[in-house]
């Protein structure tokens, strides 16, 4: 190859481009889903459906207009809800992103 670069050869890691074109990372997903309707399922199987206000790196979640679903039945409604991230199994988009 043409070695036009100065003496110190770039370490191999620098040659790998940063995670390139695909925009499917968890961070990208979360950016896209804030403000949208989501289904949050906990490991216990309980679902929370609502509008995602925000979340943090622990997957702690703030939801608005929240409905609690147990076995497909609405068991509670909350104006706002804070869900502790360790209980979260998944966050799924409930409307088009």
């Amino acid at each position: 190859m043409d070695e036009t670069t100065p003496p110190p050869p770039p370490p191999e890691s620098e040659q790998l481009p940063p995670p390139p074109t695909h925009t499917g990372s968890p961070t990208d997903f979360l950016k896209g889903v804030v403000g949208k309707r989501v289904i949050v399922r906990l490991t216990s199987g309980v679902d929370y459906r609502g509008v995602l206000s925000c979340l943090d790196g622990y997957m702690n979640i703030a939801l608005e207009q929240t409905e609690e679903h147990v076995n497909g039945v609405v068991t509670n409604r909350y104006g706002d809800a804070f869900i502790r991230g360790n209980n979260v199994l998944y966050i799924s988009a409930a409307e088009a992103l």
Binding site: L42, S44, Y48, T66, Y78, G79, D80, A81, F82, I83, R84, N87
Partner: peptide
């Protein structure tokens, strides 16, 4: 803690 819900602020 699983969930904390504040009083409605509406």
């Amino acid at each position: 803690v699983i969930l904390v819900s504040p009083p409605s602020r509406t």
